[in-house]
């Protein structure tokens, strides 16, 4: 077993590490949330990750998108992500340079999808595509100092679309956002993903965790599933 796992091996056991090494995750979006999620998944032991993003690194990304540095400006995010994550450990990383649309196919071997997209049009669509293939999805969204996380399990929870109907669909560029919120919410998203993969702990099923880092406020909204 790789020495990199020595400090969390006592927490999740050899079986947990094995499950992670055998797991396949699709991370949609390699921005503020995605770069945090990706780094945690790689360090914790996920074996294969699909990374979907069409963007290039820009200077305003550097306030929170943890895998990028000044020298990466102008490069495709997916290329930088793969280069940086491979410095941490050997992991099967597959970059997909595209936006999520109706024709996007979630690969058959994916165990769980992580929504790190930056607009609700894409978020709802990604969940529709995941549900079509019977795949669970971890959702997070951020704005300013706050955000929310929930985990969608086919046939067990409402869809993201039904749960958050009324959310702003159109993409609004340049929303104010700060590292403390994207790191916090991205960390919780990664935690949900890991817990699902190793079958440990409690998931946010039919519950929305609302986080406001400005006021240190963590609240759960219970969702009626029928």
């Amino acid at each position: 077993m790789e020495e990199i796992f020595a400090r969390h091996l006592p927490l999740i056991g050899k079986d947990g590490i094995r499950r992670l090494l055998n797991s396949k995750v699709l991370v949609a979006g390699a921005g503020g949330l995605g770069t945090v999620v990706l780094q945690i998944l790689v360090r914790t032991g996920v074996g294969k990750i699909y990374i979907v993003d069409h963007g290039i690194v820009d200077e305003p990304d550097l306030n929170r998108q943890i895998l990028y540095n000044r020298g990466d400006i102008g490069e495709a995010k997916v290329d930088v992500v793969i280069r940086e994550l491979n410095k941490i450990r050997d992991v099967d990383l597959i970059g997909i340079k595209c936006t999520i649309d109706e024709n996007f196919e979630i690969p058959e071997d994916v165990d769980i999808v992580v929504d790190c997209l930056d607009n609700f049009y894409g978020k709802f669509l990604l969940n529709d595509l995941a549900l079509k293939k019977d795949k669970p999805l971890v959702h997070a969204g951020i704005s300013g100092f706050y955000g929310q996380v929930t985990t969608i399990i086919p046939k067990e929870t409402l869809s993201l679309r039904d749960m958050l109907r009324g959310a702003l669909i159109e993409k609004r560029g340049g929303l104010p956002v700060i590292a403390v919120s994207s790191f916090s919410l991205g960390t919780i998203e990664a935690s949900e993903t890991i817990k699902y993969l190793i079958g440990k702990g409690t998931l946010l099923k039919n519950r929305i965790l609302v986080v406001d880092v400005l006021h240190n406020d963590f609240q759960i909204i219970e969702i009626a599933s029928s």
Binding site: G29, G31, G32, L33, G34, D115, C116, L117, D118, N119, F120, K123, A140, G141, I142, S143, G144, Y146, G147, Q148, L164, A167, L168, R172, L175, V177, S181, L185, I208, V210, I221
Partner: peptide, 10 residues
Amino acid sequence: ISVLPPGSGG
């Protein structure tokens, strides 16, 4: 009655 303005960014 719960009122939530969800964050849409990523």
